[in-house]
């Protein structure tokens, strides 16, 4: 019972926190320099790992699909099937998981340390608004870079699929790519990108919230980091279901126009 109460209390607090961030974004925007610093920092930190994760997600999907479709003699469609599955579902999900462990944990630990060492109180005491000074640049920076990183990850997943398709199933890269548009329609691609954006917002909100409200010294920072990773992953799964559900409706509505 206590856990349920705590969950709703935490959920409500994070929504209020998001509202404060958005309010600050509108009425007291932060400096662009700080946002660009964050975008640069997050992107540089995570680009190689995201690209590599994307590459292997695409490769795994291709290998798995190749084993299935070859039985039905549908190997030429491997590119379309693997890419569609990766971009619509597995790619954003797995890459977002990885980002939650890397960007989310880093941001939460950084903000948590600032909180327990009273640096956030110091910012407040110097007459500045901590939300405007440290949260907003990170929030915007994480959303932009995570969206960018997820997109790069998805592109790399196609590259991984093409390469593994060639080496594992002997599919010509040109043939692999040629069949992608026959199965992966624009609404599917859009659905994947919407997922990337949604996951980026979920990640940015949770890691800044958990970090900002850290209590209890070094142990508290540790707790915040673990809580950020767990909560973000769970929230991403829930958001994935939500966006899949909404995305399906949009795809059905758009079917007549695109297919």
């Amino acid at each position: 019972m206590k856990a349920i109460f705590f969950f709703f209390d935490d959920f409500g607090s994070s929504i209020i926190f998001l509202k404060d961030i958005l309010k600050t974004m509108i009425f007291r925007p932060c400096s662009r320099r700080l946002v660009f610093e964050q975008i640069w920092q997050v992107t540089i930190q995570s680009l190689p790992t995201t690209a590599m994760a994307g590459f292997f997600v695409g490769a795994i999907m291709t290998v798995q699909f190749a084993m299935q479709v070859s039985e039905f003699g549908a190997l030429p469609y491997l590119g379309g099937l693997a890419t569609s599955g990766t971009i619509r579902e597995i790619g954003p999900l797995l890459i977002a998981f990885m980002l939650s462990g890397k960007v989310g944990a880093y941001t939460s630990a950084e903000l948590g340390t600032m909180r327990v060492t009273e640096q956030i109180d110091a910012i407040r005491c110097l007459g500045a608004d901590p939300i405007q000074e440290i949260i907003l640049p990170r929030f915007i920076g994480i959303i932009i870079s995570s969206f960018f990183l997820l997109t790069i990850g998805l592109i790399m997943s196609v590259v991984g699929g093409v390469i593994l398709g060639y080496f594992f199933s002997g599919i010509n890269p040109e043939e692999y790519v040629r069949h992608i548009p026959t199965i992966l329609a624009w609404p599917s691609l859009l659905s994947g990108l919407i997922k990337c954006l949604t996951f980026a917002v979920v990640l940015a909100t949770i890691c800044t919230y958990k970090g900002y409200f850290t209590t209890g010294g070094a142990k508290g920072v540790g707790r915040s980091v673990v809580s950020t990773a767990v909560t973000t992953m769970m929230s991403i799964v829930v958001a994935d279901w939500g966006t899949s559900f909404v995305g399906e409706i949009i795809i059905n509505m758009c079917k007549d126009y695109f297919l």
Partner: peptide
């Protein structure tokens, strides 16, 4: 206001 924190912050 100005404030000096216990651990300097």
């Amino acid at each position: 206001m100005g404030m000096l924190f216990q651990k300097n912050a």
